[in-house]
Design a protein around this nucleic acid. Structure first.
Lengths: 212, 212
DNA sequence: CCAAAAGTGTTGGAAATACACCCATGC
DNA sequence: GCATGGGTGTATTTCCAACACTTTTGG
């Protein structure tokens, strides 16, 4: 996913079932690898694997008729790439806006929707945002990312406040140059942690605070 | 899971890898069923399937060495049975407290922990509680259930308020008889909806309210 | 000086926790 | 009447959304 719209990397099928339709990258699981290793291997053929900032299991799709012919069980993943890296992709793959998908193969449309919903949920109670943002960014750039992913505008002020309260942002000290139309130059920030973390585990029924 | 401690149904292995250890119920996926149909079929051999109030996918466990011999990919599920039904189970299966598991087969200990954590999270932002409670219950009985599942005491007053505000509780009008030590008789409640529902989707970055 | 964009302060409200107090029952 | 457990009312706290206002730049 990249840019100011939420996008997904799809691959145009060359083989027979559903030729020409767009499908999610993936492939067969080898006997000596687990599913995450497998999806990372498959993706390495499409994008620079070092750009992958987050990968997580979504769900198993296993309906007997989900593909023609013998049943294929698929483990779907959500994988994220930061905005702005604009990775070179092979000829047969392309980034598509999630809100405007082409005709997809099999149940891949459902899978994309599930991935989108998972991302939207996790933006609220984890720090996954870090996986969408470049190393340094302005608050308004981050606001664009959150807005694109969530599907509605979020307030830049409150975004900064929430992430700051959770200790996820650190100012780099630098500022971005202001555009040609003027305006105050924006301060640059980066995310503190690296991996994903649950930052707001309990909305309710919170565990009792630690006494000391 | 049942009673005032969180419990899991385990099955004592009769076959060779890890004979005698306790394992989760399950079995092979047939080519004409999806994974959920499959787990329900497997469970039907152990418990009365009508007691199953909630079933959801947890994750795929696929490490090449998770079982001896050729690799087996497992799709793990969280399945819930209400408190108090105390289902008859076959000789070779038993309910075990999640907090005090016996020696388990393969990676089943990890799976149980994952299931427990999933349940704990979802108690906060969904109505899964309904799957743990009998059809009618007192608030303090419900409090026991939530406390057992979460691992710490929750306040009965606030539990009622939170669930009420979310529109999940409806009073039946009846009261439970008070115990032999006296005390005011407790009002009986039941859950409104049937299936699982997300009741508190966004802790933060809430979508703008619908204008009309 | 004006427009534009970034950043700060303030206010209001929602929702959860904690706790004091009242209610109904058995003995 | 008193102990026991259930239920209600209320204050406090935390946190988020909204918005007005100030700051810093380009032209």
């Amino acid at each position: 996913m990249r840019s100011a719209t939420l996008q997904v990397l799809l691959w145009r099928r060359a083989l027979d079932p559903h030729v020409g339709r767009w499908s999610l990258p993936g492939g067969r699981l080898r006997p000596d690898e687990d599913v995450e290793t497998s999806i990372r291997r498959q993706l390495a053929e499409k994008v620079d694997i070092r750009q992958l900032t987050h990968v997580e299991q979504l769900a198993v799709f296993s309906a007997p008729d989900r593909v023609p012919g013998p049943r294929v069980v698929a483990t779907a993943f959500l994988g994220l790439v930061p905005s702005g890296v604009d990775p070179e992709v092979p000829e047969d793959t392309r980034w598509h806006p999630v809100a405007d998908l082409p005709r997809t193969a099999f149940d891949h449309h459902d899978i994309v929707v599930r991935a989108r919903d998972r991302l939207r949920s996790k933006l609220s109670y984890t720090n996954v945002g870090f996986a969408l943002a470049p190393r340094e960014f302005t608050i308004s750039a981050l606001r664009e990312l959150y807005s694109a992913a969530l599907g509605y505008k979020v307030d830049a002020t409150n975004l900064q406040r929430v992430l700051s309260r959770r200790g996820l942002l650190s100012p780099t000290g630098d500022t971005a140059p202001s555009g040609r139309t003027g305006g105050r130059p924006a301060a640059l920030f980066s995310f503190t942690g690296n991996g994903i973390e649950v930052t707001d585990p309990f909305a309710v029924f919170r565990p009792p605070p630690r006494r000391r």
